[in-house]
C-alpha cells in the first residue's frame, strides 16, 4: 500500500514538475521592477511609500522629489501592521495606491498622509513607539535598503511643495531555479518511474508463473 502510494505520488510530482516548466516559460518570475508615483500634497502635510517583499529578497532604491525631510523605517513582518499603528497615533492614509506584483514577489504603494503637520515632525520619535528603527535622510538622497522575504520598508516624507514624486527600483537577489529543459526532463523521468513502479506493483500475479 505504501509502495503504491509512493508510486502514485511520483507520477503526480512528475506531472507537476513538467507543468512548472511550462508555467515558467509563460509567466515566469521577474527579477526587477520599476515604479513611479506622484502624490498631490497641496492639501496634506505628508506622503508615504512602502515596499514589502512578500516572497522575494532584493535591493530597493527609492528616490524622492519634492521633499523637505524624509524618514524611513525597515519593518519585519507585515507592513500593514505598522500602518495600522500609525493610525493609532492619528496618521491616516488618503489617496493610496497599492500594487501587488506577484511575478516580482513584491508589493508597493504610495499614499498621502492626513495628520497634524507637527506630528510628522516628531516622527523620528516613533522609534520609541513602534518596534522599528527610524532613519532620517536628506532630501534628494536615494534610499537603498536590502529586503528579505517578509520584510518591508516604509518611507515618510514631509513635502517642500505641492507634489511629491517617488521613484522606486527593486532588484531581486538570491533567486535561482532549475531551467525549463531540466524541469521537463526531470518531470518526465519522475512520471515514467512512477508509472513503471505502479504498473509492477499492481500487475496481477499469475499462479505458477515464474
Amino acid at each position: 500500500m505504501i509502495a503504491r502510494l509512493a508510486a502514485r505520488t511520483l507520477i503526480v510530482v512528475g506531472i507537476a514538475v513538467i507543468l512548472a516548466g511550462v508555467i515558467a516559460e509563460l509567466v515566469g518570475a521577474k527579477t526587477s521592477v520599476e515604479w513611479e508615483a506622484s502624490i498631490d500634497t497641496s492639501n496634506i502635510p505628508g506622503a508615504a511609500m512602502t515596499v514589502f517583499a512578500f516572497s522575494s529578497s532584493g535591493r530597493v532604491e527609492i528616490s524622492v522629489e519634492g521633499a523637505r525631510s524624509i524618514y524611513y523605517m525597515t519593518l519585519r513582518g507585515d507592513p500593514m501592521i505598522a500602518l495600522r499603528q500609525l493610525s493609532t497615533i492619528n496618521i491616516s492614509m488618503v489617496e493610496h495606491t497599492l500594487v501587488s506584483d506577484i511575478r516580482a514577489g513584491v508589493a508597493y504603494g504610495a499614499a498621502g498622509l492626513q495628520t497634524n503637520p507637527l506630528l510628522l515632525k516628531t516622527l523620528p520619535l516613533l522609534a520609541n513607539i513602534l518596534p522599528v528603527e527610524v532613519t532620517t535622510t536628506s532630501a534628494g538622497d536615494v534610499i537603498e535598503v536590502n529586503l528579505t522575504g517578509g520584510n518591508g520598508v516604509l518611507v515618510v516624507v514631509e513635502p517642500s511643495g505641492d507634489k511629491v514624486v517617488f521613484h522606486m527600483r527593486y532588484t531581486v537577489t538570491g533567486y535561482s531555479r532549475l531551467d525549463t529543459y531540466t524541469l521537463t526532463v526531470l518531470g518526465t523521468m519522475t512520471s515514467l518511474a512512477g508509472i513503471i513502479a505502479y504498473n509492477r506493483l499492481t500487475r496481477p500475479r499469475v499462479a505458477g508463473h515464474t
Binding site: 503526480v12 510530482v13 514538475v17 512548472a20 515558467a24 518570475a29 522575504g149 538570491g174
Partner: peptide, 27 residues
C-alpha cells in the same frame, strides 16, 4: 485522492515558478 494531489501539486508548481522566491522558509 490522486486528483486532489495533482491539483495541489500543480498549484505548488505554479506558485513556485511565478515568483522569484529566494528563501526556503518563504517558499
Amino acid at each position: 485522492f490522486d486528483v486532489m494531489m495533482v491539483i495541489i501539486a500543480s498549484l505548488g508548481a505554479a506558485l513556485a515558478t511565478m515568483q522569484p522566491i529566494s528563501e526556503p522558509h518563504v517558499a
